[in-house]
Write a protein that binds this DNA or RNA. Structure first.
Lengths: 341, 341
DNA sequence: TATCAACACGAAAACGGTTTCGTGCTTGAT
DNA sequence: ATCAAGCACGAAACCGTTTTCGTGTTGATA
């Protein structure tokens, strides 16, 4: 077991000072060619690597960014994470990941763990618990310390920071419009009570599309499901009762389940009922029939959030005046598949 | 913007030494009650938190663990990651995540980035590229430095370290046996050429089951697909040609696709053809019909890997003798659903 | 009154780097 | 012979902790 070698070791071995070694390795003009070559050769031989922690302490920058996600089973967050990781790595940053499991407490604990020097900035989507509690003090505490923060997808107006969102309202509007244009009259909405902001926006788009096409708004056609919804048959009665000819779902799980229930009731998709779901994930691609869905471009969202964050981190050192915060909007798009015509 | 407060700040403000402050905050016996109360009150008031980086430098332990995954779109790795994160957090560790994208080079770069002090240990699954290249020097370099390493799922005998695997051979064997017992005679295997070790093990189990039940081994019934296989119809001809009455797939995507092709050829599942897939993910649960699949218990695997790693990290400081490495086997289990009878 | 513990605290080294500011020596010019 | 400049390097501070090892003061004891 070869222990890690330090500047001090090299200095002792070569009988020069630590400062000389440090400078030699940075190819400083101050040091003679001879010495530089000697030091660099020795360093290469013993595979010297500077200790990141020491550098972090000195520079007060860790080159780590903290990412806090509500969960990681949802494909959307996974793709966002991938986008973040990809972009961050390309700019020399590591990603420290924490899962809040939709819990306010975990979110707070995770942020506090990381905020004490471990990271240069945060990227996060609010947990359901936090949105419910409507308490954002832990976020403000972070920004007050001058730690850059970027919120994505599940954001709030209560905190001043950079944000990345998608045009949920617009996307829902376009999806509903598409179904109206293909002759659908009774369009159901399956939504969840959990991530308020997002679900709300999507519902707004749904209502706007109905209004703008003079279709009656029938609250019977809107089903709000609890967040961690595992009842297999909760929506079956709903379909039987309301008899829709189109369904918009705020995620693909609801959509696939709906298709299943509709099919078992003898409905053909898309002939009798058209279905569109949010979140273009694995299920949409591989379900039978495959699902027309609204792609949120998670990877792009992640890259965008990471770009905003890194830019902010690296700007921090030039100008310290009060910043103008940016909100970037990622355009969702409809991926046409077999569940619509 | 309130800047972070340090021991030095408190010391200056309260006109005591830094050492006194440090001890007072740790409730040391050395310090008088008066001073302790004064210091602690001040620290609470200004919300003092020790700087993690400084502590890491001093202790030579970061309380971070590095996790390197081949990808994160496969649900299996996602669940493993969740297991790791959960367990690590519970023991006070953060998780730094890197995605190798199945590339040898990225794997090497990521490991080198993290190995210079950023983390106390690694958990990883080998990338396809690394397995292809069969080059494990970057891993040995890490273990040689005394950094604990745990490999999971995609492992190799070439590196001495703790490992967590599943009983792939056994699981495939049981799956095939199950189908034989329900009267199937022509059992196809859809496998991939990518993660050699794993796919090979599963194929072995498939062959063993056939042999032990005196079924003929027909190489025509084995289809090896390239790793990133996106051709929609590559297996359609295969099914038409070989006409199997059961299919075992090494992942759920192959399984769901197979069902789709079989159905479009007029086969009923499971009456005409039974299908079992590895990896019990979202697709298995929500496909129509739902897919009988082999659960790899990723979360448990992650927890186990994290436990091994943290134990190893924390043991490092007691005994430094040559360790006995452990390989833990996670038992896969078959989840019965509609695609088998 | 001299001695000695016990107490309460501070100085300083250490972790592994970076960086500023000398400083001794050589060299060339005057 | 003297002096300034420039080269090549070292000393030391610093980042924010922890921890060891003093040390000055107090009160009790002989």
């Amino acid at each position: 077991m070869k222990r890690k070698i330090t500047l001090k070791d090299i200095a002792r071995e070569l009988d020069v000072s630590i400062s000389t070694v440090s400078k030699a390795l940075k190819n400083s003009e101050e040091i003679s060619r001879d010495t530089k070559e000697k030091v660099q050769a020795f360093a290469r031989l013993y595979n010297y690597r500077p200790n990141n922690i020491a550098i972090s302490l000195k520079n007060k920058r860790t080159k780590n960014i903290g990412v806090i996600l509500p969960d990681i089973v949802h494909h959307f967050f996974t793709t966002v994470f991938h986008g973040i990781e990809k972009y961050a790595n390309a700019r020399g940053y590591n990603v420290i990941a924490c899962i809040s499991d939709e819990s306010f407490d975990k979110e707070v604990i995770n942020m506090e763990m990381l905020a004490n020097g471990s990271i240069d900035g945060f990227i996060m989507a609010l947990s359901a618990g936090t949105q419910l509690k409507n308490d954002y003090n832990h976020l403000r505490q972070v920004t007050d310390q001058g730690i850059p923060l970027v919120l994505f997808d599940r954001v709030t107006d209560e905190v001043a920071c950079d944000k990345v969102v998608i045009n949920d309202e617009e996307a829902a509007y376009l999806a509903v419009k598409k179904m109206i244009n293909s002759g659908r009259k009774r369009i159901a909405l399956l939504t969840s009570e959990a991530h308020f902001n997002v679900s709300e926006k999507r519902a707004e788009g749904y209502y706007r599309a109905l209004r703008e096409h003079s279709l009656p708004v029938d609250e019977e056609l809107v089903l709000v499901l609890p967040h961690m919804y595992h009842e297999e048959n909760l929506s079956e009665g709903f379909f039987r009762r309301t008899n829709p000819d189109a369904v918009l779902c705020v995620n693909e799980i609801y959509a696939v389940r709906s298709m299943r229930h509709l099919q078992s009731q003898g409905k053909r998709i898309p002939q009798d009922v058209a279905v569109i779901g949010f979140t273009d994930g694995i299920l949409s691609r591989y379900s039978i029939p495959s699902l027309t869905s609204i792609a949120q471009h998670g990877e792009l969202m992640g890259e965008t959030a990471a770009r905003l964050l890194v830019d902010r981190i690296e700007a921090d050192f030039r100008d310290m005046d009060e910043p103008e915060y940016i909100t970037e909007v990622i355009k969702a798009s409809i991926i046409d598949r077999e569940s619509t015509d």
